[in-house]
Amino acid sequence: MVKTNPAWRALRAEGKTANLPEEKTETAKPRIGVLAIQGDYDAHASALQDVGAEPVLVRKPEQLKGLDGLIIPGGESTTFLKFLERDGFLESLRAFAAGAPTFGTCAGCILLATKVLHPPQPSLGILDATVERNAYGRQIDSSIEETATKLGPDFDTGPLETVYIRAPRIQQVGKGVSVLAERDGFPVLVRQGHLLAATFHPELSTDRRVHRYFVNMVGEARDSTPHSAPESIHKPHRKS
């Protein structure tokens, strides 16, 4: 993936870096936005760095341009919506997430869903799922669990730590959605083409499998035809 002039690489190997352009080796890193209106965007940014991606904090719609993917973090979805309802942010985000790999955790999962309950609220409506907010109760009902995952052959199959904070519940998913992990029979990690959503917080664990999985999705999307990204929705992907 590293796109470097071989001559430069040789010079670098000898330590002769003084006249070389800076950081050209880094350009192959995927640039992944983290919606930074509010919430635990810093935790996602450092998780992305851990798995070799470059995080970019996004607070305004114009900052979505040129990104290879996007994470919508945990936080308060009602607060997110207040900002998204201004300056056409919601439309820009919907257009971006319709084509580019997008990963929502907790509040982010709520924003991606086609239907939101308890109480009903607007959303991007692109992930074919019904999500109930605060379905497990209040903070006192928050918990850390472990669950089996179906991330595919590239990933360790050991149990994944899942941190639930005032978590939503995915009540049901459409046919095009594959369930990658469950809690008590309800999906907690799902994928629909280029969209990934979790009701838990992988960014609050040290296990980086879920972020690595998402960065792989971004890589797949970049390797396929870059100008028709929406096609990737229908591309076959690794299933359990």
Binding site: A36, I37, Q38, G39, D40, Y41, D42, A43, G74, G75, E76, T79, C106, A107, Q139, S142, S143, I144, V163, I165, R166, H201, L204
Partner: peptide, 23 residues
């Protein structure tokens, strides 16, 4: 099961504080 170790308990408490950042 709801049994959580104290280490888990603290992480959940700080976890909610994390969600309130920037607000």
């Amino acid at each position: 099961h709801k049994a959580q170790s104290s280490e888990h308990g603290l992480r959940l408490k700080v976890g909610l504080a994390e969600m309130l950042k920037g607000g």
